[in-house]
Amino acid sequence: MLEELIIAGFGGQGVMSMGQLLTYAGMIEDKHVAWIPSYGPEMRGGTANCAVTISDREISSPVVTEPTSVIIMNQPSLEKFERVLKPGGLLIINSSLVSKKAIRNDIKVVEIAADELANERLGNTRVANIIILGAYIKLTKVVTIDSVIESLKKVLPERRHNLIPLNRQALELGAEIV
């Protein structure tokens, strides 16, 4: 198994933390993992992305240029990353924020209106990214939802642990709708 994921959106959407959470979960499961952010001026308000590699073998290259999956959280990122996705790869689009459609037909496209779902079903749009993460995990099975929860316990400071049940709901909701 070699999963190479790019997550892309605007800075502030939780793109980086989604990737870190997934990476952490992979590490908990004793998989080989790596996380690389785009960094620099583009972080400031512009488009941000990160690459996550999860593998059951040692990772040769953590630099992802032909991802097996792409998660798109804004329109400019769709244009940039749809074309580099491997044939047969998985493209998840947050359709609450991206009105355009994917144009390739040699890939699997999943559209999730994550912001609406987060608002209507969970009353909190800030977990939109976590809903998408839940869907991604269900579709790829790279890690388990339990590992993600375990990671949250590690990366969140104690005083934020009250947010864990909401995140679990979001992950499960994402898994349920795909």
Binding site: Q20, T23, M27, V33, A34, W35, I36, Y39, P62, V63
Partner: peptide, 10 residues
């Protein structure tokens, strides 16, 4: 290099 510094690995 910039990547090595910014990259997260276990």
């Amino acid at each position: 290099d910039g990547i090595l510094g910014q990259m997260m690995e276990p």
